[in-house]
Write a protein that binds this DNA or RNA. Structure first.
Lengths: 214, 214
DNA sequence: ATTATAAACGAACAGTTGTTCTGTGTCAAT
DNA sequence: ATTGACACAGAACAACTGTTCGTTTATAAT
């Protein structure tokens, strides 16, 4: 069942007007917008649109028009917003996200929640600079999504803050004989040995996102 | 600045009424609901609510009331929904997404649009099985987001359908001396050489998503 | 006790709003 | 040529709607 040009224009106007003003237009506002001088003609066309199921009307009250949804509701996908806090292993100090941190900078990415571990609290992202982790299949330019942690298990991929060097780095974490070994995943690079007191674990990698052609 | 009980009741009614009817109430409908018999009193209270920033009023028109959002609107992030069509290099036939394909299976992921290339049409995802691409830092279990392509450039990471083998595989694509070379990124594996007529390029990898601890 | 302000109230009014009535024009079918 | 359906148009009307006016009551401050 097709619409005339005028009827389509009326629908478009109702949608645009309602979106802007948060209330529907009157008969006269519709008429004015689509060039119909007679309220009777607007009323006639609205009755047709109602009969066809495009709108619903509440009788005799002002602005008693509502659009009928035209497409079935898209099923919602639960997503999570993740602040991208900066870059890692670039030697710059980097703030640790807290439970009430504000988003620094304004870059945020949004992902399907199911891509993250069960606990998606305290999640942030960093962009990797450098190739120290290529054997862990994390390369320069990758985005790593991290979950804030203060403790690490052996073998975890973590971001750690080295207090004496005042820099953050991404490495595999091992605690051996009272010392921390931060192991690159690149055979050309040496591990870092550090006093546990000098190491502050900030987060554990839970997801890696890469553009393979960049 | 506090609200009287009556003013709170008016706000609650406006919110409930608007949610239900999709248009705001009139002065008289408000009065009837909160037990105010005089339109002047309703008008007085609405003016107070407007002054305090709870509502906005469009003057002298019917139903010219709108609620002012009580929390700042979360800035929208444009996202893209990507169907996950299955697994690749598992030897099973895999349908090619077309411009009007339906989502097979019901797994869909949603990502920030800016993570994808400029043209995000005809995008789908596959989960990788196998380690043939570890030197391209794509491992078993990774999700690769692909853009439908029918042609590949040398060096592109692509999914190709091998007609004679009836299987899809993920490899780097090279066209050399009239032959297609599909190059694994794993030094322990041999490239596949194929007649171009036997090879159907399906898509090019534009993003890789990995859980590093799975 | 007095004053100022807030809150309330009914009535009246002007303008808005949707519906109905009567009539005309166009087009397709017969 | 006639008929019926559709679309249109202006006018009139009743009811709706928001604003203003004049007044009263309650409360707090002085």
């Amino acid at each position: 069942m097709t619409l005339t040009d005028r009827q389509q224009a009326i629908l478009d106007f109702i949608r645009a007007f309602s979106g802007k003003t948060k209330y529907p237009p009157t008969i006269r506002e519709i008429g004015k917008s689509v060039g119909i001088s007679s309220t009777s003609v607007v009323n006639y066309n609205l009755n047709v649109l109602e009969k066809q199921g495009h709108i619903a009307r509440d009788k005799t009250i002002s602005r008693g028009i509502k659009l009928v949804e035209e497409s079935p509701e898209i099923p919602p996908i639960e997503t999570v917003r993740i602040p991208v806090l900066g870059r890692i292993a670039a030697g710059e100090p980097m703030p640790v996200p807290g439970s009430d941190f504000a988003i620094l900078g304004d870059e945020v990415i949004e992902l399907t929640r199911e891509l993250l571990p069960m606990d998606d609290k305290n999640v942030f992202a960093l962009q990797v600079r450098g190739n120290s982790m290529v054997d862990a299949m994390i390369g320069d330019g990758d985005i790593v999504v991290m979950q804030h942690r203060q403790k690490a298990d052996n073998g975890d991929l973590v971001a750690v803050w080295l207090k004496d060097r005042e820099e953050t780095t991404l490495k595999r974490f091992y605690l051996e004989k009272g010392k921390v070994r931060l192991q690159p995943a690149n055979p050309t690079m040496q591990p870092i040995f550090a006093d546990p007191k000098n190491v502050e674990v900030q987060g554990k990698v839970v997801l890696v996102i890469r553009h393979p052609n960049k």
